[in-house]
Simulated assay, not measured.
Amino acid sequence: MGFSLIAMDGGSPPRSGNTQIRIVVLDVNDNSPVFLQELYVAHILENAPEGSIILSVVATDLDEGPNGDISYQFSQAVSESDSAFLIDPVSGEIKLTKPLDFETAENHELNVQATDGGGLSAICKVLVEVVDVNDNAPELVVSTFSSLLPENALPGTVVALFAVRDRDSGANGKISCALEDQLSFSLRPAYKNYYELVTVSELDREETAQYILSVTAADAGSPPLTTTQTFTVDISDMNDNAPVFNQTSYTILWTMSK
């Protein structure tokens, strides 16, 4: 900003002189930083490697010089998740410092503070939503199991009761169970996530004295993960067979000597 100052005397003719006056307005730190967004939301896969960039926060300041220079840092976080994240103090870029785990925490909430050179600051929130990946195989937990079964057990006899579970979510945690080719046994849902391994036909120890049954639990992830549990069932003998002669009749030739 500038203007001219003219001085004039009272002579005849009058004489005058002029000078240029320039006013320099010095900046004071009267503007706080302002974030472009009050809330930033990021989605990141739980198997994202260390050093992955999540997002960048941006704040502006109308002041000039040092009063307008902004630095970024984490303020007190809502959760104890700061150690998994690092923010660049100049660019506002947030990176991972270690892998995340969806099963431990599905989201992380961070508070980011922008501070100018004069000490004024502003805060925004960053919500990091962790996206589940299929990194957990199904678990098969046996509640009861009868390893010895009489051969006269009725069809529908329960051999084993077990539960299946998967720590993943959505399709990654949806489980189906299958029994490998077997005519004498089958699987049937019990309740909630429980299954029963049952007999479906009469058993015959004299024909088969031991069964090795394999149950496979598979999730619906891509690719699917599986777990196989083996049940060894011995068949105990019952007295269900009468003695049988090799022949229905026998002929004995007897010669009497004198």
Rank of each mutant, 00 (worst) to 15 (best):
131 V>N: 08
19 T>Q: 03
198 V>G: 00
10 G>L: 11
219 D>H: 01
240 D>H: 14
87 I>G: 00
155 P>D: 05
9 D>F: 07
90 V>P: 00
64 E>D: 06
189 P>R: 08
34 V>R: 08
69 D>E: 13
175 I>H: 02
204 D>M: 11
12 S>A: 15
24 V>H: 14
156 G>K: 07
217 A>K: 00
175 I>M: 05
168 D>E: 07
156 G>H: 06
134 N>G: 09
148 L>D: 09
220 A>H: 06
162 F>R: 02
250 Y>E: 09
200 V>T: 13
250 Y>I: 07
42 A>R: 02
185 F>K: 03
153 A>W: 01
15 R>K: 15
219 D>T: 01
175 I>C: 03
186 S>G: 15
254 W>Q: 12
239 N>A: 15
195 Y>L: 06
166 D>R: 00
68 G>E: 03
213 L>A: 08
50 E>I: 14
79 S>C: 15
4 S>Q: 12
21 I>D: 04
122 A>R: 01
162 F>L: 08
146 S>T: 07
108 H>C: 06
85 F>I: 05
27 D>Y: 02
200 V>C: 11
177 C>N: 10
171 A>R: 11
240 D>Y: 14
186 S>Q: 12
43 H>A: 09
131 V>S: 10
110 L>I: 07
127 L>R: 05
105 A>P: 04
88 D>G: 04
100 L>W: 03
89 P>W: 00
252 I>E: 07
197 L>I: 02
99 P>D: 09
39 L>P: 00
62 L>R: 10
239 N>G: 14
146 S>Q: 13
31 N>E: 10
206 E>L: 15
136 N>Y: 06
64 E>A: 14
168 D>H: 03
98 K>W: 09
77 A>Y: 01
207 E>C: 09
72 Y>R: 02
174 K>C: 04
219 D>S: 05
139 E>H: 06
